[in-house]
């Protein structure tokens, strides 16, 4: 019953998102939707740790950047194909997540924030230091990839759009599977009552580490995809703006919900793009809006959607009782 509902939701999302390129001819809008999907994936995987696991960490941007840099370095210096490169990005993020996670997940709360914060800066320093490999401040430029001997660019808008969509769906199924699995159950029980969970034989360190590592993989994949799409990688990948976008997607959409971060990412990406006319003032207005949203919509937009849905479905049942739960 439950999984049937999820299947329907996935189908609806796939249907809507896959017909958009046929209806909307403007490449710009496709570009924005694609960015939203990519940012949504990174945010919702981060949400696995923050929302479901209750471990607030700042390593998601380093994961994203690790994916981007690893694939860019291998493809520029060794001519690695982007198809493998995207997978390599995920693997790089997983390796990084083990390096960070094994020591860092022993501490909690504000100390975990600090630890991951320090790793962020160490990675940035390394990228800036090894100029020969990473291109330093200037970054690296990736060559367009042709399919075979043809002149068709492998990263043409339609192909990239559907690649992003497949990653989007993959991520949804991936997260849903984890949440419904024993790991997800253990994770949520640790978040809600660690003492009880431990008394039932759950090893908190192991479960947290597994989640941390799992949630890094698609962030790395997205980093790699993003870099191939832009055809350039620079230290801007470590920007605060990424951190804010991902984190705010989670909070605005709804912490600890499946669709919240995705919704948040779409809203934020479109908001950011629609504020382009403000030019220099864009970031100022964006910052102000962010604070206002946090103050006036603390529970996230997904709660509004849930409420609307519950009113709608209770009317349909015609039971006469409005479900006040949500």
């Amino acid at each position: 019953m439950k999984s049937n509902k999820f299947l329907l939701e996935i189908l609806a999302i796939v249907l809507v998102l896959s017909v958009i390129p046929a209806l909307v001819r403007q490449q710009y809008i496709l570009h924005v939707i694609m960015l939203a999907m990519i940012f949504g994936i990174v945010a919702s995987n981060w949400n696995l740790a923050i929302g479901y696991g209750g471990m607030f960490h700042l390593a998601q941007v380093p994961f994203f950047a690790a994916g981007g840099y690893s694939t860019a370095i291998l493809s520029v210096h060794m001519g690695l194909s982007p198809l493998i490169g995207i997978l390599v990005g995920g693997v790089a993020a997983v390796i990084l997540s083990l390096i960070i996670g094994i020591p860092a997940l022993r501490v909690r709360g504000i100390y975990l924030v600090f630890l991951t914060f320090a790793f962020h800066f160490i990675m940035l320093s390394l990228v800036l230091y090894f100029v020969d490999i990473t291109g330093g401040d200037m970054g690296l430029i990736l060559e367009p990839i042709r399919i075979g001997a043809t002149n068709i660019d492998m990263f043409n808008p339609v192909v990239t759009y559907y690649t992003a969509l497949s990653l989007f769906v993959l991520s949804l199924v991936f997260i849903k599977t984890i949440i419904d699995s024993k790991i997800g159950l253990a994770l949520v029980s640790l978040r809600d009552s660690e003492v009880y969970a431990v008394s039932r034989g759950i090893n908190p360190y192991k479960i947290k580490l597994v989640t941390f590592v799992l949630s890094s993989f698609l962030a790395g994949v997205c980093g790699a995809f993003y870099v191939h799409y832009l055809r350039v990688v620079t230290p801007a990948l470590f920007d605060w703006s990424f951190l804010i976008t991902f984190l705010a997607s989670i909070v605005i959409g709804g912490v600890g919900t499946l669709y919240g971060p995705l919704l948040g990412a779409f809203i934020l990406t479109f908001l950011m793009e629609s504020l382009r006319f403000l030019e220099m003032f864009r970031n100022i207005v964006f910052g102000l809006l962010m604070i206002l949203i946090l103050i006036f919509m603390p529970k996230g937009l997904i709660m509004l959607a849930n409420r609307a849905q519950s009113i709608f479905s209770s009317r349909q049942n015609s039971a006469g009782i409005v479900d006040e739960e949500n």
């Binding site: 924030v113 605060w240 703006s241 951190l243 804010i244 984190l247 705010a248 909070v251 970031n283 100022i284 964006f286 910052g287 102000l288 962010m290 604070i291 946090l294 103050i295």
Partner: peptide
């Protein structure tokens, strides 16, 4: 508060 103060510093 973390996000909001970070947003403030960006402003």
């Amino acid at each position: 508060i973390f996000i909001a103060t970070l947003a403030t510093s960006i402003i």
